[in-house]
Design a protein around this nucleic acid. Structure first.
Lengths: 138, 138
DNA sequence: TATTGTTATACTCTATAACTATA
DNA sequence: TATAGTTATAGAGTATAACAATA
């Protein structure tokens, strides 16, 4: 992978390399990539409806159901009737979910740290900032 | 998408944003994402066997066949018996393939340019360099 | 015997359309 | 009538296994 390739190809290459390194870490903690994405979205303490959650993580609302079933059965998230709208079900992390997410997140960060080895702190900061810019740009 | 998210999430977000913006461009030129990847891999003038090409672009060798069938039918690539090993078939761009790839690449670069608007040249250079580092790091 | 290209098959992931209960 | 969640079904994408030609 060369730095004069398309930017899309570079992002895909970097993302794939990271994902491949992180998959065994997630497996060791008994989570799929998307399950981890759900835990991360809820980690700030949010309690969104399933529909809002699906939109936030850009995941299909119908597939989210089975994902949440698994996380609920594992005791990591809880679903409650929405306070305002009883059609909606509100999702939040359990205490165990909070602990589990923190543990996995630390392990993930270790992997990322290893992949970033050789890049100075200022470059890392700029990389994160530029990626966030790209992710939100229109 | 926030810049203190996981690096993997940031790469995925940036990659998805770019891919979504580039898809209509590719469609307008009658190419799928993977077909464009193949053209890009061959653009430097290389003439690899199908197996080597599949490994280079990290694509399944069995799926590559249908992909090449389409590109060959469109007159963009040519398959010839390998000079050294007659089992292998060597793939290369046709003249039309070279032209088509250059046209699509220019259009893709325009999209990327728009997405990068607001980032100074030095930041862009650093971004490309850091992404290439991440894509190749172990 | 091992490998390249190929085909056929099975499997997984994803998207679409209908059903229920609330609004 | 419309919307949140759910379910079932169909479709695309991907991986696995077997075959023919050549090494």
């Amino acid at each position: 992978m060369n730095e004069d390739d398309d930017l899309g190809a570079l992002c895909a290459g970097a993302g794939r390399n990271l994902a491949e390194a992180e998959r065994p870490v997630l497996e060791r903690h008994g989570l799929s990539m998307w399950q981890y994405v759900v835990l991360s979205a809820l980690a700030p303490g949010a309690a969104p409806s399933q529909l809002v959650l699906a939109q936030q993580i850009r995941y299909d609302k119908t597939r989210l159901i089975a994902l949440l079933d698994g996380l609920e059965a594992a005791g990591l998230v809880a679903r409650e009737p929405g306070p305002a709208d009883r059609r909606a079900r509100v999702v939040r992390l359990t205490q165990e979910g909070i602990r589990r997410h923190a543990a996995v997140r630390d392990a993930i960060r270790e992997v990322e740290e290893r992949k970033l080895a050789g890049l100075p702190p200022e470059t890392r900061r700029l990389l994160r900032s530029a990626l966030a810019h790209l992710a939100n740009a229109d």
